[in-house]
Amino acid sequence: MSAARGGGRFVTGIAWAVLLLGLWLWGRDVSGGSGSTSAPTTGDIAAVGRPLGVPLPPAHDPLKGVAPRRVEIPSLGIAAPVVPRGLDADGAVDPPPYAQAGTVGWFDSGARPGEAGAALLVGHVDTQSRPAVFYGLSAARSGERITVTAVDGSVAEFTIDDIQVFPRKHFDAAKVYGPRRQGRAELRLITCGGTYDHRTKAYTANVVVSAYLTDARDPAPSKPSKP
């Protein structure tokens, strides 16, 4: 199973419409054939969304935004390189190949993590034979941290505020991929969820973890070279 197919920089007009259609289609024929590993159980999370009483920090002002290099979710043990990805022939975000199932794809025609808007990160949940980078994503909880390290060494820290499972039969692209609050820097981590339907060769849902920028760190100063 893989991440949902696929801001700051805004995708407009026909290109945006094609992208949303592709995102809805994402999850088809992406398990590598058999869907032999079990998909995470996600039905309970769909009803949770944002649990009441979870204290969340204030949002940080949006940043200039730099291309991401690495994403980490310490509470889930996820630490993975990030690579830029474009659209495939179906108009969906092209996830990393299965040979790189431990890598996360960033939709590089959308927002950069830290910019105003919703940056999209997609990853496979499993392959024919083993779990992949976002296999444990459905266990995320509100209040947990996500850090994104940029190519220049700066770090953007996000706080998870919402975890939902969206059935593909009732998919709302605007709600899933659009920013929750205008002018806020947000992050979407997306993978497949629900169950694998061998008849349609597709998963029945998408797991969507939403987060927003709460802290930022500049690149560490370089050490002076020895004379």
Rank of each mutant, 00 (worst) to 15 (best):
C192F: 13
D197T: 04
R199N: 05
A156Q: 01
D197E: 01
G193R: 03
E157C: 02
F166H: 08
F166I: 03
G178V: 14
Q182T: 14
Y196C: 04
Q164A: 14
Y177S: 06
L189T: 00
I160W: 09
P167D: 15
I163H: 00
I160N: 11
G183F: 05
A185I: 09
F171G: 04
P179V: 03
I163V: 15
H170K: 11
I163F: 06
I190W: 02
K175I: 07
H170C: 01
R184E: 14
E186W: 04
I163S: 05
A173T: 10
E157R: 08
I160R: 09
R168W: 01
F171V: 06
L189P: 04
F166T: 14
E157I: 03
E157H: 05
R188M: 09
L189W: 01
T195M: 03
I190K: 00
V176H: 05
Q182G: 11
H170L: 12
G193E: 02
G178A: 12
F171C: 07
V155C: 03
Y177R: 02
R188T: 11
E186L: 08
R199I: 09
P179W: 05
A185E: 05
I160C: 12
A156R: 03
R188Y: 10
T191D: 15
V155I: 12
R199T: 10
R184C: 00
F158S: 08
H198F: 11
T195W: 10
H198S: 13
D197P: 00
G193W: 04
D162C: 12
Y196F: 15
F166Q: 12
D161C: 06
V155N: 02
T159R: 03
K175E: 10
T191S: 15
F166P: 00
A173H: 00
G193F: 01
P179N: 01
P179F: 10
V155A: 06
K175L: 08
T191G: 13
R188D: 09
R184S: 10
G178L: 13
Q182I: 09
K175G: 05
R181G: 03
A156N: 03
V176Q: 00
F158A: 06
T195L: 10
D197K: 02
E157Q: 07
A156S: 12
G183V: 08
D197F: 00
D162Q: 15
K175T: 13
I160E: 13
H170E: 11
I160F: 11
V176R: 04
P179E: 06
P167I: 13
R188G: 13
G193L: 04
R184Q: 14
E157T: 15
F166G: 02
G194R: 00
I163M: 03
D172W: 07
G178F: 12
R188E: 05
D172N: 15
A173F: 02
D161Q: 08
C192V: 14
H198M: 03
K175H: 10
K169W: 11
R188F: 09
K169G: 12
F166D: 04
R181F: 10
Q182D: 14
I190F: 00
L187T: 12
K175M: 06
R199G: 10
G193K: 08
E157V: 11
T159F: 01
I160P: 07
P179R: 05
A174D: 14
D161K: 10
G193Q: 04
D172E: 13
K175P: 02
T195A: 10
H198P: 01
D162R: 15
R180E: 03
L189R: 04
V176G: 05
Q164K: 12
